[in-house]
């Protein structure tokens, strides 16, 4: 029998949100993920019979925060290996199945590398993995954008509570949470600083937050 995950320590008695990852933590986690991606790309050559290596890899960020995350991962990979990795973004808004519940939002650009994604190793990059619905929408979007050889998933935080059979291939940090909690990833490019916070949701709020609250 699975043990219920211990919810993350969150709000301190004073009400300040609990910090899961500091700025330095985020940098370290990103570096580790970059290394894992390098390994995956290298092993992919042997496993899949493909010969692309890092040139085969495309990091596709899911806006909003998956996009800068993908760019950071690419920058770190380049720093470690000297090889430039293709990066793109895929806006999934028009592919969501929960618009009726969540309302519209401004669309963000979908940008793919000139070489496209056909036949390549596409790693979707997102900040938080929660219900899995965003990833499902991203897979639908990818299908309209090309035909990758392999699609994998990298997330900074996996907070559990999946509603779909989806699993991340690269996880920065696993964080057991309760459903009512919110996990918020802040990135310098958008929020001015790097950190990952967990806060208690308002009582009675049952809607999934975290990856959904983009």
């Amino acid at each position: 029998m699975a043990r219920a995950p211990e919810p993350a320590r969150s709000t301190a008695p004073g009400g300040a949100p609990g910090t899961l990852l500091t700025s330095a933590d985020v940098a370290r986690v990103v570096d580790r993920m970059a290394h894992q991606l390098i390994e995956r790309a290298a092993s992919g050559r042997a496993e899949d019979g493909a010969d692309g290596g890092l040139a085969d890899l495309v990091l596709v960020g899911i806006p909003t925060r998956g996009a800068p995350l993908a760019r950071r991962l690419a920058a770190r990979i380049e720093a470690f290996t000297g090889t430039r990795v293709d990066v793109g973004t895929a806006d999934i808004t028009l592919y969501r199945d929960d618009l009726r519940l969540r309302g519209v939002r401004a669309l963000e650009p979908t940008v793919l590398p000139d070489a496209g994604i056909d036949g390549r190793l596409v790693v979707l990059v997102d900040d938080v993995l929660f219900s899995g619905r965003s990833v499902r929408a991203a897979l639908d979007a990818l299908r309209d954008l090309g035909r990758p050889r392999v699609v994998q998933l990298a997330v900074l935080v996996d907070r559990g509570h999946r509603e779909l059979p989806i699993k991340a291939d690269f996880v920065g940090k696993n964080v057991p949470t309760s459903r009512s909690q919110q996990v918020r990833v802040h990135l310098a490019e958008i929020d001015g600083a790097d950190e990952v916070l967990v806060t208690d949701g308002e009582p009675g709020v049952r809607e999934p937050r975290g990856e959904e609250a983009r």
Binding site: L94, Y95, D97, A106, L107, P109, T110
Partner: peptide, 26 residues
């Protein structure tokens, strides 16, 4: 402005596609 920006994003999302269809309002 939101309408115009959204139209531009939709245009961009569909540019060059063979199947110009999105599942949004299924």
């Amino acid at each position: 402005t939101l309408v115009l920006d959204t139209a531009a994003q939709i245009d961009q999302a569909l540019a060059g596609r063979e199947v110009k269809k999105l599942p949004t309002l299924r």
